[in-house]
């Protein structure tokens, strides 16, 4: 139990706002680049598009430092366990952006024998960015959408890890 769980302070709207405001502009991003989308993700991190101005810090040296996981590219069934492992190593609270058609739903590999059709079968996803590949502007838009989501979160619920647990096996 940490301070967040023990104190009633976070129920106060100004405190809640302040905590979420701090969190949404401090997202250390983990690069899970797997295909051409990874190039767009990297381009978004460089000077022209520069997602650091939105508080997204490129790039965490390992999942244990990261807050945000961007899955950019084609996840194969063989890669899926590694992705799950990386996600599990990220400490709560954590967020996932599925970047590009392949990681959203399989994309052009929708009927492939080896591609996972949708990364949300493996890990929970907060924001889906469509495109093949999406332009950096699309990722910036996705980050803003994620920040809107964070701004309205109940921090204690998010901290509990219940929201980021593995999807129940069907």
């Amino acid at each position: 139990m940490g301070l967040i769980e023990r104190t009633p302070l976070v129920n106060l709207q100004p405190v809640k706002f302040l905590l979420n405001w701090g969190r949404k502009y401090s997202l250390w991003v983990m690069n899970f680049g797997l295909a051409c989308c990874a190039i767009e993700l990297i381009a978004t991190s460089t000077s022209k598009h520069d997602f650091i101005r939105l508080g997204v810090i490129p790039f965490a040296h390992g999942p244990r430092q990261a807050d945000l996981l961007v899955v950019a590219g084609t996840v194969t069934d063989k890669m899926a366990p590694a992705l799950k492992r990386v996600y599990d190593q990220i400490p709560d609270p954590k967020y996932t952006i599925s970047f590009g058609s392949c990681s959203n739903c399989g994309g052009p590999y929708w009927d492939s024998y080896s591609v996972t059709k949708g990364v949300d079968q493996i890990i929970p996803v907060d924001v889906y960015v469509p495109g093949c590949p999406p332009r950096p502007e699309a990722l910036l838009h996705g980050i803003i959408k994620l920040q809107e989501k964070i701004a309205h979160e109940d921090i204690r619920e998010k901290w509990s890890g219940k929201l980021t647990g593995a999807p129940a096996p069907s």
Partner: peptide, 22 residues
């Protein structure tokens, strides 16, 4: 291929499960 993979996916008679659904 992953170790647990069954079948030979580039054979013509290999069934693509996604194509069965759609």
């Amino acid at each position: 291929l992953p170790e647990q993979f069954e079948g030979h996916p580039l054979r013509k008679d290999f069934a693509l499960t996604t194509r069965l659904a759609k």
